[in-house]
């Protein structure tokens, strides 16, 4: 069950974010774990999980790792860590498209070679789809479809 709020730091919500919120609302059953997403800019990283007023951590990949360790998702294996880190790095490299493209190729090559866990699928899908949004490159589409097919 996911709720969305927009912080005053966001002047205008991008179209992709609006579409994402609509898609989530369509899929949401209205029960289960409650998640509140606050769209906000000007943070040191693009994703912060606030567990309580004094505890938070950064990164979508780290959220997936956390859920794995809490038993919500399949446990991550040692070999997954490198892929989770590569996915994180892919988002961080958005200012250097050439390096980002090289890393996307490497990430796709690696996930084709090893059996992916649920955590890796979630994290790499998100990183590659954001890469696609930014670059309009359709070369990631096959991998995105493969991941969707596994779920």
């Amino acid at each position: 069950y996911v709720n969305f709020f927009t912080h005053s730091s966001v002047a205008q919500l991008p179209e992709a974010a609006k579409e994402f919120a609509e898609e989530i609302s369509r899929l949401s059953t209205g029960d289960g774990q409650k998640v509140t997403v606050i769209w906000k800019t000007g943070m040191p990283a693009n994703f912060e999980v606030i567990l309580n007023p004094t505890t938070s951590f950064w990164g979508e990949g780290n959220f997936i790792r956390y859920l794995s360790r809490m038993g919500v998702l399949d446990n991550t294996q040692d070999t997954d860590d490198m892929l989770l880190d590569m996915s994180h790095q892919l988002l961080v490299l958005s200012d250097d498209r050439k390096e980002q493209t090289k890393l996307a190729d490497r990430l796709m090559g690696t996930i084709r070679k090893q059996k992916a866990s649920q955590s890796v699928d979630y994290t790499t899908y998100s990183a590659l789809r954001n890469f696609r949004n930014a670059t309009k490159s359709d070369k990631v589409d096959v991998v995105l479809q493969d991941i969707m097919g596994r779920l």
Binding site: V2, H7, V10, L13, P14, A16, A17, F20, E23, I24, L27, S28, Q33, K34, V35, T36, V37, I38, W39, K40, T41, M43, A45, N46, F47, E48, V49, I50, L51, N52, E60, F63, I64, M70, V72, L73, L91, S94, D121, Y122, T123, Y125, S126, R129, N130, N133, I147, L151
Partner: peptide, 23 residues
């Protein structure tokens, strides 16, 4: 597990992993 997760997200990147978790 906490009752609620509060996540702050920069809308320049979309947290598609949440979408997959609902599917």
């Amino acid at each position: 597990l906490p009752d609620e997760y509060v996540i702050a997200v920069d809308p320049a990147t979309i947290p598609y992993s949440l979408l997959l978790m609902l599917q």
